[in-house]
Simulated assay, not measured.
Amino acid sequence: MKKSVLVALLVVALLGASLAPQAHAQGWETLVAALVPRIIGLWRRGDIQILGHACTYRVRPRIRRWRLYYRGRVTCPGWTSITGSAQTRSRSKVVNETVTDFLNKAVSAGLITKSEARSWLQ
């Protein structure tokens, strides 16, 4: 699901909460306050060291056939133009799968050896 859709849903919820009678508005405010951090937490971005090189990863949620998936991407701009990517249902596993894809592509391109990739994955 795109950020714009989530933001639009949040805006509609906030507008509905502001128009509701005061007794019901407190329930909406509590609900929105509880949901917003969880929705925002679906997106992640960070730095990672791969074989001594500074790389960045990005995780974004995606809804496909009413199921939540996580799409990951790893790039190492100072080292190579190879991009690792993966899509899984597991939020905790997507970065590992993405790095594995990146290392497999780096081995195929002759940038690193299989033993270097294997030692990093262990």
Rank of each mutant, 00 (worst) to 15 (best):
T100K: 10
L68F: 04
A54D: 15
A8G: 15
I48M: 03
I48E: 07
A117I: 00
L35D: 09
L103W: 04
C76L: 07
R45S: 15
A17T: 05
M1P: 05
T30A: 08
S115Q: 15
I39L: 12
R118E: 14
R44Y: 05
G84D: 06
T75C: 09
Q49C: 12
T100D: 10
A8R: 12
P61A: 00
G52L: 09
G110I: 08
K3D: 13
S115W: 12
G84Q: 03
G72D: 01
W43A: 08
L35F: 12
Y57S: 05
I48N: 07
P77C: 09
C55M: 11
M1I: 01
V107Y: 01
Y70L: 06
T88E: 05
L103N: 04
R89D: 04
T80G: 03
L31Y: 14
A25W: 00
I112H: 02
L121S: 12
S85D: 13
S119F: 10
T56I: 15
Q26V: 11
L15Y: 08
I63M: 03
S108L: 15
L121Y: 00
G110F: 02
I112T: 01
L14N: 00
L68P: 03
L31N: 13
V94F: 01
A20R: 03
G41A: 08
V36R: 10
Q87A: 10
D101N: 15
L68Q: 00
L51Y: 03
